[in-house]
């Protein structure tokens, strides 16, 4: 029986079937915590715990899916080009907003976590919390964090932004749709951008581009900011 778990097919098939089920659940109930990724992750963890299967056995197959995040990051460059054409006339204020917001994201999360007594590996893992998962994983790995913790936090941040982002922004007096889109893309990457699309197509474009710009920015500056905090 144990041999079945050790094959790549096990992890891949389990992920595919769970993900499809999660999508069906999401289609039936529009509840915000029924995010397909969140549901899939929770369900697979429960499955592995119940049947006493190691993560390493699951990941024999899982890593093949994870590998595809590499080309996905490159694909984001294509998205970046497409969206760039759509918002050219607003590019300077837009880039400024994303750069300042993205920088503050890294500084504030590291500062607060350090203040609350988080250890060095934790800080190195949560520093890229606002950028899209494939880029966050690369950043966390590069600066000596734990990619699995980074992935979990990034997904949680995305769901938080998706669920509460627009309400928080409106409460704070931000009513412009493009600004809401850019804020969601910068703070809560692709999962937040999905919500920005509810505000309109252009707001979605702002979100998508913000996600790409912030991903690049964070990849470049995170090593330096983290170094300042963890001398």
């Amino acid at each position: 029986m144990n041999e079945i778990y050790q094959q790549p097919l096990f992890g891949i098939f389990l992920t595919l079937i769970v993900f499809q089920t999660a999508k069906i659940i999401r289609g039936k109930w529009k509840f915000v915590l029924f995010n397909p990724v969140l549901l899939s992750v929770i369900f697979i963890i429960c499955f592995l715990l119940v049947f006493d299967i190691d993560f390493e056995a699951y990941n024999v197959g899982g890593q093949y899916l994870g590998f595809l995040l590499g080309p996905t990051v490159v694909a984001l460059g294509v998205l970046f080009y497409e969206k760039y054409e759509q918002i050219k006339e607003n590019i300077l204020p837009f880039v400024s907003a994303v750069v300042v917001g993205g920088t503050m994201s890294i500084i504030s999360v590291c500062g607060i976590a350090l203040f609350l007594g988080a250890t060095e590996p934790i800080i190195r893992s949560i520093a890229p919390k606002s950028v899209t998962t494939p880029i966050a994983l690369e950043i966390a790995t590069t600066i000596g964090g734990v990619p699995y913790i980074a992935a979990g936090i990034v997904i949680a941040v995305g769901i938080f932004g998706n669920a509460f982002g627009p309400a928080i922004l409106r409460l704070l007096g931000i009513k412009d749709k493009n600004a809401i889109g850019a804020a969601l893309g910068t703070a809560a990457h692709g999962i937040g951008t999905a919500r920005a699309l509810d505000e309109g197509k252009l707001a979605g474009a702002y979100g998508g581009l913000a996600m790409c710009v912030n991903g690049l920015l964070t990849a470049i500056i995170t090593p330096y900011i983290v170094k300042l905090f963890l001398l």
Partner: peptide
């Protein structure tokens, strides 16, 4: 993309 990062989430 979201499917590809499920294994990393499970790694948590």
């Amino acid at each position: 993309m979201v499917l590809f990062f499920v294994p990393y989430g499970v790694g948590l």
